[in-house]
Structures are given as C-alpha cells and as structure tokens.
Design a protein around this nucleic acid. Sequence first.
DNA 1: ATGGCGCATGGAATGCGA
Length: 253
Amino acid sequence: MKLATWNVNSLKVRLPQVLDWLASVQPDVLCLQELKQEDKAFPEAELAAAGYTSAFSGQKTYNGVAILSRQPITDVQIGIPGFADEQKRLIAATVNDVRIICGYFPNGQAVGSEKFAYKMSWLAALTEWLTVELARYPRLALLGDYNIAPEDRDAHADWKEEIHVSAPERAAFAALLDTGLQDAFRLFDQPEKSFSWWDYRMLAFRRNFGLRIDHILLTPTLAADCRSCQVDKSPRALERPSDHAPVVAEIAA
DNA sequence: ATGGCGCATGGAATGCGA
C-alpha cells in the first residue's frame, strides 16, 4: 500500500500535475493540503475518472484538505473533535483497515505571534485527540504539511528560534512521537539535505535551500511493515510547481 | 538568506504562505 502527502498550493492550479502524478506513481492514498477552493469546486469527477474517490473539506482562499483513494473511503471525519476551528485543516477516513489522518498544520507566521499561539493550541488539540484515536486504530497514519522541521538536519540553515524550527514547535512534534508514532522518513537511510519544501524566491529549489516539513507518521504496526519513504522532488522541478514536493511511504501488503 | 515568488481576491494592491 502506497501512502502519499502533497501540499499542492491551490488544487485548481495544480490539478493537471496531480493527475499526471497519480498516473505515474499510482499511490493507493494521496492526502492533499492547501486546496484553496470551496467544496463545490472540488474536481471530484476528474479524480474519479482517474480512478480515485475523494473525501474533502475545502474553503475559499485558504487551507482545505482532501484524501484521495483507489479503494473505498469510509468513516470520514472533518476537523479535530472538540476543537472549534473555522479553518479547514484536518480530515480523517478509513481505507481498508488503515486510519488515514490528513492535516494542514498551521504555519504560525512568527514565534510569539497570535498565529503562533493558534498553531500551538492546534497541535495540543491534535495530540490529545490522537491518544484516543490510537487506542481505536492500531494501524494509523498521520500525513500532511506539519510546518515543523523536527531536527537541525531538516533545515538548510542553522536556525534556532525561527518559525518551523523553534523549541516549542519541535517539542510539539516530539509529543506526537511520544504517542508512539514513528517518522517514516527516518526509518531509512536518506540523502543529506533532504527537504520537502523550497521557497519560490531566491532560486531556493535549485540551491536546495529547503525545509523538511511534510511528514508521514506511522503507528508501530504500520512502521514495521513500511518498506520505503521518500520525497519525490520531480514535481517541484516542473513549470508552475507547488512549493512543496510529495512524500511517499510504501507499506507491505 | 527576508527579499526578489506565487496564489487568491477582484479587477489594483494586499494578505498570506513558509
């Protein structure tokens, strides 16, 4: 089973690339973030024609998440239960016996800002809810744009208390690992300076000035069956790319 | 490395992302 996540930065703009990528990589599940469109505009028919059913939660201009799957999707849930949030950042569903959670974690803008406080409260709510979900679903995967680079090697520069690398954000990521989840990417040897996002400016992709902020976390039972996890940099080199690249994990059937 | 980019909105200039 191939699981993937990709922040597409506007599904309207990126739909042709998503369809091409689905056809060539053929993931079983693809989690999308930053749809930036309302549900009525979601390209359900085009994706169905490509062999994927969809569960989605969109909104105008910002945010928006979706789960695409080649197999039937059941038990769809939108948002974090008990956490009132107008921003569409989380969708969960079951595919076969795997519970899929797709998240677009808040950016946080700047350490200490109001948006940073929102990011931290969102992370706390997610982690608290996850402890409940993990008891229900031994085979669970949390995929998405976390907007956190967990370690120094996940950032191209040696930042300390900047957004995405600050101690509180890294502590929140560590708290997710403390629930038992494992970072699929770090189950394997990886190239140095592996990132999943590069700024549009300053030729950042060409210079590999990036961050690894898109992650796939797996419960121990799924991690034991995980055979590979990689960033697919190829879509980032296309014309009009998303600033994020897809991350793919393969789970033995 | 902060910006120089890209997207959405709305129909120019601004907010936002990371």
